[in-house]
Amino acid sequence: MSLLKILVVDDHKMIRDGIKSMLQEEKEYLIVGEASNGKQALNILKDTDIDVVIMDINMPEMNGVECTTEIKKNYPNTKVLALTMHDEELYLVKMMEAGAVGYILKDLGKDELLKAIKEIANGKSYFSPEITISVIKELTSTSKQSEQCSNPLTSREFEVLELIVQEFSNHEIAHKLSISIRTVDAHRRNLLEKTDSKNTAGLVKFALNSKWFNS
């Protein structure tokens, strides 16, 4: 097996040194370059074949997300492994969307780093077990979901809608549910927004058409 050529991109020299120190004794890996931002990394990629880029996310000049997008466009065979701190889930989502195939934490151990590089060099993806995949999944799914799926009603909104359908006034609804009129107003406003109705008639129509009321 030929040597895996690696580029390390991070604006902190001590982090680059840390990664290098982990890989320097490994015979299969060769660090062929290092860069402190996305622009430098792209410059290196122009003249050098790189198999794996270990890429920080937040960097000056050009950040990891922009750089990954460029790499995917111009060097589709080069794999990007995102290098992240614990508190950067949102950025991580953007990295994955830009085309990174895995991510590792900045305080990872040597075994994990070797494993991650090996996996993604073999065309697989790698997700650091320490970071909560559930969180990432949640974020990626909801960011796509919220655009198409309308917002469901909450249980209180449902209660208020039921009473609106029964033609109770705001005042009566407030009394029945022992809440203030302003709270009823707040629910009503959200109901109008969520059901895309203009007025009470619209709300009633929505309610009658929806499956909850047909039971």
Binding site: H12, M14, I15, D17, G18, I19, S21, M22, M85, D87, K106, D107, L108, G109, K110, D111, L113
Partner: peptide, 21 residues
Amino acid sequence: LHDGLGQYLSAATLNFGSILG
């Protein structure tokens, strides 16, 4: 915390991690 302390701590673990084995 993120740019300063966090990076130092990470670099420290990377260094220790490289000789942990």
